[in-house]
């Protein structure tokens, strides 16, 4: 069965997920979360907790038992009272890159999945550089062990290998996949959902599940250019690669206008849905450069800085 040339799943395996130039640019960036999570290990990220770091946070009255090293003697001199200097606790950040590997993600050149891999690699590397805990997973409804969390720049190669070996074409609904992910990963952190959200059962439950687990959720919706500007002619019978659903269309300017309007409406619905829940929704095209996207677009959206 022919596929539209723009939709052919051509994966350029020789192309690295991250080029050396990209690595250099990403090292200067940092993942940003709008929530302060309790990390398991000490990291380079402020914690809600007060702890040991170089960043002053507040004062409080001394109580017996406090560490005398944190008494601000200057304050004692001025007020003749013991005040304890509190510092921001710096913790590591949990960053989850959640990739949709459904068959619909296998289209485009590069495929949307490849684009998602690159995106996850870039964001993950940023996290590794900041000693965040990076986990990369795909949506699946299977019971699989949680993937290993990676930390530190030295684990970049592990991150890339994980990304390259992710299982593909899992026929999992978005909702089920996300729920299984939530079960596997009880902690909190940033979740970047990389998907086209083309799930006929809907995307709402999946996003609600992420929000319910108090993840700092970013949704990056990926389209191929052929989906944004379809170049189709004639009378076609479209076959859904996931469920084999058929759609007979006779391409006409009117239909194409209608399609684009539907696409805009679909994206608008998701954006509105996400905005109401404090979720950043971003639409990307596989034709866009990942480096550029991360360095400028996601920075403007607040995911990195």
């Amino acid at each position: 069965m022919p596929r539209h040339p723009y939709l052919s799943p051509i994966v350029n395996e020789s192309e690295p997920l991250l080029s050396p130039e990209t690595l250099g640019r990403l090292e200067r960036l940092e993942l940003v979360t709008r929530k302060i999570f309790r990390g398991q290990l000490k990291g380079e990220r402020r914690s809600r907790r007060k702890g040991q770091s170089v960043e002053f946070a507040d004062y409080r009255n001394y109580v017996a038992g406090d560490d005398l090293r944190f008494i601000d003697w200057n304050m004692y001199a001025r007020f003749d009272k013991l005040f304890l200097r509190l510092y921001q606790e710096e913790e590591d950040l949990h960053f989850f890159a959640l990739l949709d590997s459904s068959p619909s993600m296998m289209f485009g050149e590069p495929t949307k999945f490849r684009f998602a891999q690159k995106m996850a690699a870039a964001l993950g590397y940023i996290g590794l550089c900041r000693s965040d805990r990076i986990k990369v997973e795909v949506l699946t409804d299977q019971i699989v062990p949680p993937s290993a969390a990676l930390r530190g720049k030295g684990n970049l190669w592990k991150l890339l290998r994980q990304l390259e070996t992710l299982p593909t074409t899992t026929s999992t609904s978005l909702d089920a996949g996300v729920k299984k992910f939530c079960i596997r990963n009880p902690g909190k952190g940033i979740v970047v959902l990389l998907s086209d959200l083309m799930d006929k059962s809907g995307y709402e439950n999946a996003i609600r599940a992420l929000v319910a687990r108090q993840y700092d959720v970013y949704v990056i919706q990926i389209f191929s250019p052929a989906e944004l500007e379809p170049d189709l002619t004639g009378d076609l019978q479209l076959i859904d690669c996931e469920d084999g659903d058929l759609a007979d269309i006779s391409v006409s300017p009117r239909l194409m206008e209608r399609y684009k309007a539907t696409l805009q409406s679909f994206v608008g619905e998701i954006r509105h849905f996400c905005a109401r829940r404090g979720i950043v929704h971003t639409v990307c095209s596989t034709a866009q450069d990942v480096d550029q996207l991360v360095a400028s677009y996601l920075r403007s959206r607040g995911l990195v800085r």
């Binding site: 069965m1 596929r3 939709l7 993600m105 076609l236 019978q237 859904d240």
Partner: peptide, 10 residues
């Protein structure tokens, strides 16, 4: 023409 697409949803 039978053409496989990512999704017939839209």
């Amino acid at each position: 023409t039978r053409l496989e697409v990512p999704s017939t949803f839209l």
